[in-house]
Design a protein around this nucleic acid. Structure first.
Length: 261
DNA sequence: ATGACAAACTTTGTTTGA
């Protein structure tokens, strides 16, 4: 089973790219972020015509996540627990049946948190603490799950083109990395780094300043696996060619392969 | 030293993103 995560930066702007990519790669599951659409306006038909079941958790203008799956979802849960006042659409969980048992797949869009010093940064840290709690509770089930998404976290200096340029940013500073490590320490495996120790491979390149042609990127889109999912890990790769397409997102898809059907 | 790019809506500027 192949499970992609991709921040598409707007379904309206990326609809044709998404369709072309789904036809080309044919992932079993796709976790999308920044759909930037309310659920009622999400263009479903062409995606469903490719054979995908589609569930969204959208909001107007910003944020928004979606799950696509060739298999039907047994259950869908929207919103990350822990703060009923949080109105931002950043989390959707689906449960699938596989030949190795149930598999939970989450598409998440972790808050950016910039600028540090505004209310946005403590919102990010609070969201990460809620995700840690979610992970601890789900791990008690001892089932396979995949937390896939745009984490807005640069895990290590190997995941940026320039440590000094990024250090201190909300994506790459002590408090952020402490909580990311705490999340991993609940018992999760970061799939890409479990498969590939080559430094300076990225999943995001800014639209500005020629960041893509100069390869000034960061790796912030991740799959975190429960132990039961990590036992099924076969591979994980960044599909960077998509960044060269016409009208690209600033993120590229990252594709996880698990040994289940 | 500065700005630089894209998307959506608040739409001919502003807000957000990273």
């Amino acid at each position: 089973m192949r499970i992609a995560t991709w921040n598409i930066n707007g379904i309206k702007a990326r609809h044709d790219n998404l369709l072309r990519w789904l036809e080309q790669e044919s992932p079993d599951v796709a976790c999308l972020q920044e759909i930037k659409s309310v659920d009622e306006n999400f263009p479903r038909k062409a995606i469903e015509d490719l054979g995908y079941h589609l569930e969204t958790h959208g909001q107007k203008s910003f944020n928004g996540v979606a799950l696509l799956s060739k298999k039907p979802f047994e259950e869908i849960n929207r919103r990350l627990p822990g703060d009923d006042s949080d109105e931002q659409a950043r989390f959707i969980e689906g449960i699938l049946s596989t030949d190795k048992g149930p598999l939970r797949v989450v598409s998440l869009y972790l808050p950016n948190g910039n600028p540090v010093g505004t209310e946005k940064y403590p919102y990010k840290l609070g969201w990460m603490r809620r995700l840690i709690e979610w992970s601890k509770q789900r791990l008690e089930l001892e089932e396979a799950f995949v937390l896939a998404g745009d984490y807005n976290v640069i895990p290590t200096a190997h995941d940026t083109h320039d440590h000094d340029a990024w250090w201190g940013d909300a994506l790459y500073r002590e408090e952020t990395l402490d909580l990311f490590r705490e999340l991993l320490a609940t018992g999760l495996t970061e799939a890409f780094r479990a498969c590939n120790d080559t430094p300076h491979l990225y999943s995001f390149w800014d639209y500005q300043a020629g960041a893509w042609p100069r390869n000034m990127g960061i790796r912030i889109d991740h799959h975190l696996l429960s132990p039961e999912a990590a036992d099924l890990l076969k591979g994980c790769e960044i599909l960077k060619d998509v960044r060269d397409w016409e009208k690209p997102s600033d993120h590229v898809p990252v594709m996880l392969t698990l040994d289940c059907e």
